[in-house]
């Protein structure tokens, strides 16, 4: 086992262990924190696919996080009111079943990612950053100005959605769902990045015309990556909505895009478990420093600055060394 593999395993054990110890000690709040870390890590894993492996700096991933969240909130609130979400072209009833909500949340964010990616991937560099940001802000303002689902005030749905065989109200059981999905996403990304598709994505990051010369169209590869990335982030948004039983336009704002980016950069860009390390560190800092000062994010800023300057491989790179020795 390489050093990075050992570190990855340790990180996952730390996440699970924190939740289990908290359960044993009856510290429900710590379990919720661990759940939040798992969800943020899942969002980071999604973004890492394009940001880390594809070298595409998307500043609009809050759009997918928020869409996943809103899909969940809207379905849950309609299930409670008994009014169908839509009657045309077919009747779509609300639902409180996670297994029914997830595919819809993933589909909504995946479709949005396909559309946003198809347009933004025609640009590159700073224009790509700006175009993705612009699309996300469009959806953010749409959510604010659309009164049907709470507008600026957001949308509460009071009761967490259900999962067969589990009591989602028990924090440790909901944590298990989130950690399980995080593990599944990590497995998926591990397989993808070793596949020909993932290799082409990483190769295109380094040099586009060399990829073209072996007969691969970088645009198609990147669009597929962008869509998969949006789908993973959308699933994270759905879980985040369930964690809080509340969705608001804040999930769609550019602060959220930046936060997801921080998980990836803090943990290690293009490292499989980078977002896990980043999200764990972020939540830990928020919890520990947040008690000391309301301005804890200034310290986070300093830490981020130090990481970017002195350890471009992030926390993973700092501990496990450079990739591919």
């Amino acid at each position: 086992m390489t050093r990075e593999a050992a570190l990855n395993a340790a990180l996952f054990v730390a996440l699970i262990g924190t939740a289990l110890v908290a359960q044993a000690l009856g510290e429900g709040f710590i379990i919720t924190l661990a759940t939040k870390a798992a969800i943020f890590a899942l969002a980071g894993v999604g973004l890492n696919l394009v940001l880390g492996y594809g070298g595409l700096v998307s500043f609009g991933h809050a759009a997918f996080f928020g869409l996943g969240g809103y899909a969940t909130g809207i379905l849950a609130s309609h299930a409670m009111s008994g009014v169908p979400v839509a009657t045309l072209p077919f009747t779509l009833n609300g639902s409180t079943e996670m297994l029914a909500i997830w595919p819809l949340a993933i589909a909504a964010s995946g479709l949005a990612a396909l559309a946003i990616g198809a347009l933004s991937l025609r640009t590159s560099g700073v224009y790509f950053i700006m175009v993705t940001l612009a699309f996300a802000q469009m959806i953010y303002y749409l959510a604010i100005s659309w009164p049907a689902y709470g507008g600026e005030d957001g949308l509460s749905f009071y009761v967490r959605n259900t999962f067969p065989g589990l009591n989602t109200f028990d924090p440790i059981q909901f944590f298990a769902i989130c950690a399980g999905l995080l593990a599944a996403a990590l497995g998926l990304v591990a397989v993808l990045t070793r596949s020909r598709f993932g290799l082409a994505l990483r190769a295109a990051r380094q040099n586009e015309s060399r990829v073209v010369a072996v007969g691969i169209r970088p645009y198609s590869i990147r669009l597929l990556a962008f869509m998969l990335s949006g789908m993973i982030v959308g699933l994270a948004g759905s879980l985040y909505a369930d964690l809080n039983r509340f969705v608001s336009p804040a999930m769609l704002s550019w602060h959220m895009s930046g936060e997801i980016m921080v998980f990836v950069i803090l943990g290690g860009v293009g490292r499989l478990f980078g977002p896990v390390a980043g999200a764990l560190a972020y939540i830990a800092l928020e919890h520990l420093l947040g008690g000391v000062s309301d301005y804890w994010q200034a310290l986070l800023g300093l830490l981020l600055l130090a990481i970017v300057i002195y350890a471009p491989g992030g926390l993973i790179g700092l501990i496990a060394g450079r990739r591919h020795v």
């Binding site: 990483r202 190769a203 040099n207 060399r210 990829v211 072996v214 691969i216 591919h324």
Partner: peptide, 29 residues
Amino acid sequence: HRAAQLGLGLVPEGRRCFAPLSVAENLAV
């Protein structure tokens, strides 16, 4: 990329490998 798929196998000037990938990965891609 379509021209390449038709069977034009280019070895570009200046040893252009995909530096972040391993030898096996360079070949597999």
